[in-house]
Amino acid sequence: MNEHQLDQRLAGLQREVAPGRDLWPGIEQRIDAGAGQSTAGGGGAARYPRWFALAASVLLLVAIGRVFLPSQTQSDPAAAGQSLLAVSAAQELQALDQVLMQLRGTPEEWLDGLGQSGRYGMSAVLLGEAAPVWRPQLIAGLQENQKAIISLRTALSQQPEHISLLRQLANAERRQHRLLRQWADFNRSGQTGILLTNTTNDFGEKHA
């Protein structure tokens, strides 16, 4: 099947599918059934220590609190959705920052793990010294695209079979991969720059 045929098939699919019924009771039933099986298997309580169960309970309470608290404090569902999106976006951007910092601080072998595109074969000195120029620009691009990914994922959680959103998300993920690879290539080539600029990281935070 070529790309055109694939596109035609995609075009033939239903664009937006709303859930035909309230799915939560069914999910709840399955969760209950799953818990029952685990107990019946006899391994549930014995496999994990008591502290693990306690920690899991605390995490569950925090998660439930995050989900339900906005709806209690804000009567507007749209505003509640925005709050959830903001939490999710902040977490994902924080995760991205962590990844970028790891990419910068780890040895060359680690960077090689992301694959070499070979497109940016500039010498170490060139890119290392130019780090103050390209790092902020590339980070801004990564963050901008990450925000797009987050909003697409959030929209897809509401409309999981929205073909156009799926396609846009795939393109945004591909774009992010290209930007990350570019970042890795630049950093791999610019090890000198990494050493020279280690007093402040790219997010304005001081580190040792």
Binding site: S123, V125, L126, G128, E129, A130, P132, V133, T192, L196
Partner: peptide, 13 residues
């Protein structure tokens, strides 16, 4: 074309 060493880079990049 490259310059040897890293002494020449100033804050403007």
């Amino acid at each position: 074309i490259r310059h040897e060493g890293s002494w020449g880079w100033n804050w403007k990049g």
